[in-house]
């Protein structure tokens, strides 16, 4: 069997007496979408931060692409190919849409200590940037100031920036948050094709999207993973039904 791209081993993180993350082990294999769900306060954000490198675990390890990255910071993990999108859009708001994606392409290219040539005339970076915008459908907004984008467009841009990094795995924190029905459906379709390029660890509240997309689902409750399995297995799981989904949600 192939090795996972991303794997956590026994991640534990406490804030005082509260165990926000308790012995969490999960993995992400090439070609799959692994969804992480859980009620509010289950510790999803704490887990995401530990995987992305914003927060150091009390114990446990994070492995990425065959090596231990537990002690790398966000920058180091991004360089290794972890493409992250945020729950609340995290973009350079004064820049144009194009500048934001060029920044992504620049990060991937690495040569940031160049002081003289205009970056917005760099053909290779522009090509990559436009390609990414094209894929998420923001080509027409390229010259728009990011602050003037609609909420949904910002979500798209966030994904476009992650695309320019050509990551080995995506870490997406509620990409559907605040999208309308149609926006959500479009993004679902897009992520469906994206999984073949790089696997996605998807934290999402939109259950329709989760069950439509995920190859596997892990359920996090009070900092612990109480179940991992396919959509059907999760639907049928008694613990999950009581803890999270609620009887009425299960069709």
């Amino acid at each position: 069997m192939t090795d996972p791209i991303l794997r956590t081993k026994g991640l534990t993180k406490s804030f005082g007496a509260l165990k926000a993350c308790n012995d969490v082990s999960l993995d992400l294999f090439p070609g799959e979408i692994h969804a992480l769900i859980g009620p509010n306060g289950a510790g999803k954000s704490t887990l995401i931060k530990q995987i992305a490198g914003n927060m150091a675990p009390d114990s446990g390890e994070v492995w990425f692409d065959g090596s231990d990255v537990t002690h790398l910071d966000t920058v180091g993990r991004a360089r290794r190919g972890l493409g992250r999108t945020f729950q609340i859009s995290s973009l350079a708001m004064e820049y144009t849409v194009l500048q934001n994606v060029v920044l992504g392409a620049l990060g991937r290219d690495g040569g940031v200590m160049r002081f003289f040539k205009p970056v917005m005339k760099d053909k290779r970076l522009l090509e990559e940037a436009h390609a990414a915008l094209d894929r998420v459908g923001l080509t027409e907004q390229a010259a728009t100031r990011t602050a003037d984008l609609s909420h949904g467009q910002r979500r798209q841009l966030e994904v476009a920036v992650a695309l320019t990094l050509k990551p080995k795995a995506f870490l997406m924190d509620e990409p559907m948050a605040g999208l309308g029905v149609e926006g959500s459906r479009n993004l679902t379709g897009f992520l469906d094709t994206l999984r073949h390029e790089a696997p996605i660890l998807l934290v999402e509240h939109d259950m329709d999207a989760v069950f439509a997309l995920a190859d596997r689902i892990s359920v996090l409750v009070y900092g612990e993973i109480i179940a991992t399995g396919t959509g059907d297995e999760i639907r049928a799981n008694r613990d999950v039904r009581t803890a999270y989904l609620g009887e009425e949600d299960v069709a």
Binding site: D73, A78, R79, A92, L106, R108, V161, T164, L165
Partner: peptide, 8 residues
């Protein structure tokens, strides 16, 4: 945060 997320 945006800058660090693209690996810079």
């Amino acid at each position: 945060e945006r800058v660090e997320t693209v690996g810079v």
